[in-house]
Design a protein around this nucleic acid. Structure first.
Lengths: 225, 225
DNA sequence: ACGGTTCCTTACAAAAGCTGTAAGTGGTTT
DNA sequence: AAACCACTTACAGCTTTTGTAAGGAACCGT
């Protein structure tokens, strides 16, 4: 767990940011390559991402949007341009805060500290996909128009579906994650719980978001990608 | 439910803010007097508070701090002075964002929209006292070092204790809120559940935070005020 | 179109968790 | 010392959740 993950291409600024944050008592590390940045970041399971949007190659905005899609950790945007439109774009993409560089070390530490505090208090257990969020401790599922508390088995299934989104979840994976690593001889129990999950989801208007892939497994289908 | 509650003493700016926010599709209303502002705001149960820190009389910072103590709604600070120290003070007080006036209507609407979205998605059911937070849907209690999912009865009691903090909760109130408006003939059931709640709280290191007031009721005691 | 396979749904009973009752102990007040 | 109030533990009924069983529907190849 690296705590804060920094995504910044300027080597000098990168080191300066690490230094500032470590001095403030946080555990910070930076990405050194930017291909497959999304996968790198997600696999590090950070508590906060510090993202420079002016990366070489493709836009940092797109990366921000994609990260926010499936993850709950906060993102603090770094930008060189102090313009209104930039700020609006950043907030519109789901960024939690933004700073213009160069920035005062105290300011950076204060912003980072605030985001970390909020995250660690409430979002650690939160899994997000599009407009849905699932608390993996209580299995409380919140959508745009309502919420629902799932039973444990249904919750575990929903968790897998959201974690793997937008990929298909193999039936074997489901058996492994929900019932332990047993062989999945009894297909029925999975079907029964899928049925229950779908019925639960329908209660808050989420119809047809769990699709079966014949012979393979199940996928989550959310229109807002 | 007024949605956004505005706390601003300048009448013209106040009207302008209301107009801007209503135009952006939000339901906004402003306080007209500022004595007992804290009680006024809490009783309105807003989804967002827009707070000018340069109020007549006592400081808006203190009001912000007090509101954040017991409430979950987000606070957006308005300030005339665009200085670093002000910003740091605001964030240190638990404000969720801040703006310097005069501000661009689009910018205001964007910030307000972001805070409202977050709040409505996750914080609506959240009750906070000091370092504790309770999800009133799932009765998940989060403290600095751990969490706990309370059973329904224990959760209802905890909710009352947190809502009334730092005041004593009368035994009668507890009976009314937890078991309906019955007479509280059977003191024992309350004691049993208090005992259970205390045992649960001890699991995450929260010992001796529920104190009995002989003959009256119970109070929550959190050291961090 | 037919048969086999895969998936869906409903009903039922065992298991687990939650809740109130009962009863006994310990501490406080007068 | 007696009365009162608070705390704790054990137990049994109730509710919720879970897996089993079985019948029906949809899909796919021949």
């Amino acid at each position: 767990m690296p705590g804060i993950v920094i995504v910044e291409d300027d080597i000098y600024l990168r080191e300066e940011l690490i230094h500032t944050l470590k001095k403030a008592g946080y555990d910070a590390a930076a990405l050194t390559t930017f291909d497959r940045a999304e996968e790198q970041i997600v696999s590090l399971r950070p508590e906060l991402v510090l993202l420079d949007v002016n990366l070489p190659g493709k836009s940092g905005y797109e990366l921000c949007r994609r990260l926010k899609m499936k993850s709950a950790f906060p993102i603090l945007i770094l930008t060189a341009r102090d313009t209104l439109s930039d700020e609006l774009t950043a907030l519109g993409l789901g960024a939690d805060d933004f700073l213009t560089k160069p920035c005062h070390p105290d300011r950076l530490a204060a912003r980072a500290g605030r985001l970390l505090q909020t995250y660690n208090r409430q979002f650690r257990a939160l899994l997000r996909v599009g407009a849905l969020s699932l608390d993996t401790d209580t299995y409380k599922l919140v959508s745009e128009d309502g919420f629902l508390i799932l039973a444990e088995t249904e919750g575990k299934i929903m968790r897998l579906l959201m974690e793997q989104y937008p990929h298909i979840v193999d039936k074997g994976e489901l058996f492994a994650a929900v019932w332990g690593t047993e062989e999945f001889v009894d297909e029925n129990i999975l079907q029964v719980n899928m049925s229950r999950l779908r019925k639960s989801l329908a209660e808050i208007g989420l119809k047809e978001i769990v699709r079966n892939i014949r012979g393979k497994g199940y996928v989550l289908e959310v229109d807002g990608l």
